[in-house]
């Protein structure tokens, strides 16, 4: 359609005359791809609009209301946000959530990366792969309960072991300074295999010949990792980091089953606080405002990560 129009257009100078058809052809291609893109996106868009976008917009509206779930909401402007700005429990929840995210994502990513590389470089065993995925097959509430027991001060086998070796017992879930770290490690245990498998899928996408080349060069294990594996894995690693950071900011189940936010407020992470405000205290407007703030924080972090890690670029292509 555009092409025909351009053909009829008066031709003014040669350099332009040459470039126009090429540009037009590309544009035509883009338009036809837009049509395909729309078709390809229809089902996903339905899901996105109905089950994510609409509820999120509704939540945004509710964050400006006083709403207890049982009566209609009343609009109160920015009151919830003003109240949050001076809510010490909110600020503390940000602090402890950050603690959790740093420990959880830090340990989990490094360990999963090592594990994925170990699986790629040292074994093809399906049994190993199956075993490291086992924790992820157990529902997280159960995982939390099992560790709650294993770590119990009086009845847990870990403290019995410490006691046997003459080491002081540790209140893994009951000590204010340790509780959040314990919860983070419990989730590392459950998600290690999962994250390793994601990374492993990325490693599988690395062509074999680059390893051949490295072998020919006589590169050691560490050098192969540094200069072959890591750069080529970067897009997948970036993806895994974004997903795990966003996911661990939303920590909830493990806290709900074990500490319930205590001791004092040591494990009252933001998402747990949101839940308590919404469903225990029936302060849904306030909880919505907290959730909006959490969303903004997460979006900012994801954006930053994407920029820092240049997630869209694959070194393979270049």
């Amino acid at each position: 359609m555009t092409i025909t129009a351009d053909k009829e257009a008066p031709q003014r100078d040669t350099p332009r005359k040459r470039s126009v058809p090429k540009k037009v052809k590309k544009k035509a291609n883009r338009d036809s791809q837009l049509k395909s893109a729309v078709l390809f996106l229809i089902p996903a868009s339905i899901g996105f609009i109905v089950f994510f976008a609409w509820p999120a917009l509704r939540g945004l509206y509710l964050s400006f209301t006083d709403y207890n779930l049982l009566r209609p909401p009343t609009f109160i402007g920015f009151d919830n946000y003003v109240a949050i700005s001076t809510d010490p429990v909110f600020w503390n929840s940000l602090k402890v959530t950050l603690q959790y995210v740093v420990i959880n994502v830090g340990v989990q990513t490094v360990a999963a990366l090592l594990l994925a590389v170990l699986m790629q470089r040292f074994t093809r065993s399906m049994v190993v792969r199956g075993v490291i995925m086992l924790p992820y097959l157990i529902a997280n509430v159960i995982v939390a309960l099992v560790w709650f027991w294993l770590c119990d001060y009086n009845l847990g086998i870990i403290n019995a072991g410490l006691d046997f070796f003459g080491i002081d017992k540790v209140g893994f879930f009951g000590n204010e300074n340790i509780a959040m770290g314990t919860i983070a490690m419990v989730n590392v245990w459950r998600h290690l295999g999962y994250t390793a498998l994601l990374l492993f899928a990325g490693l599988q996408a690395i062509p074999k010949d680059v390893y051949e080349a490295a072998e020919v060069d006589g590169a050691g294990e560490w050098r192969v990792f540094r200069s072959v594996t890591l750069p080529l894995l970067r897009p997948v690693l970036a993806f895994v980091l974004v997903v795990t950071v966003v996911g661990s900011f939303q920590i909830f189940d493990t806290i709900a089953v074990t500490t319930g936010g205590g001791p004092v407020d040591a494990t009252r992470a933001i998402n747990y606080y949101i839940y308590q405000r919404a469903f225990e205290r029936l302060d849904f407007g306030y909880a919505s405002a907290l959730a909006v703030i959490l969303m903004i924080i997460l979006a900012a972090i994801a954006l930053l990560q994407n920029k820092l890690l240049r997630a869209n670029e694959s070194d393979l292509e270049r």
Binding site: F148, W149, C151, D152, Y153, N154, L155, G156, K169, G171, F173, G174, N175, A179, T259, G262, P263
Partner: peptide
């Protein structure tokens, strides 16, 4: 009586 730290865990009846 156990400290708060020591009582966080398995419920009282099991203890």
């Amino acid at each position: 009586m156990p400290s708060f730290e020591a009582q966080t865990g398995i419920g009282w009846s099991d203890q």
